[in-house]
Design a protein around this nucleic acid. Structure first.
Length: 156
DNA sequence: GCCAACGTTGGC
DNA sequence: GCCAACGTTGGC
């Protein structure tokens, strides 16, 4: 099983929104970055674990755990001219963008903030804390996952 | 194929 | 709201 981190702006879609979905799952649509697409299309497997990260908000950090809930399939929002993520260069015959469904697992007991992740020297190699990082989906090593989960149990 | 201009991300 | 960092676009 592999581990990932996926960013979302909570104003757009938060871990609470995911929990509130009738089937507690949601297509991760709107990704328009090739590297992030490739992770979803080529590498993600059912049941892979996901750190659900809130970006562009008051306290950026990890707020929940999710899992990969489907195989990759074309991002249908790219085909809809009325959609915010419409891309005329993608069509059903030859889709450019792909996504997976993401399923709710649980909320973390507390937010594991970007600030504390940055302050942990053991996580210096974690792409999230590296300067200028803008990837919205990134791989997490088993070791990093363990360290982050251990952090959750401590007090902030 | 280079690279300047432009748009977006996302922390602060 | 600012702005640094970075990906993408398009002219040449």
């Amino acid at each position: 099983m592999a581990y990932w981190l996926m960013k979302s702006e909570p104003e757009e879609f938060s871990i609470d929104d995911l929990e509130a979905r009738p089937e507690q799952r949601e297509p991760w649509d709107g990704v328009r970055n090739y590297q992030a697409r490739n992770f979803m299309r080529d590498q993600m497997k059912l049941k892979d674990r996901i750190l659900f990260y809130h970006s562009n908000c008051e306290v950026p950090g990890i707020y929940g755990i999710a899992e990969v809930a489907s195989a990759a399939y074309p991002d249908f929002t790219a085909f809809d001219p009325k959609d915010k993520h419409f891309d005329p260069k993608s069509d059903p015959e030859n889709p450019r963008w792909f996504l997976v469904d993401v399923g709710f697992v649980r909320k973390t007991k507390r937010p594991i903030t970007l600030a504390e992740l940055k302050a942990d020297p053991k996580l210096a190699a974690f792409p999230l804390v590296r300067r200028g990082n803008r990837l919205s989906i990134m791989p997490v090593t088993a070791e990093q996952w363990k360290m982050i989960m251990a952090r959750e149990k401590r007090s902030a």
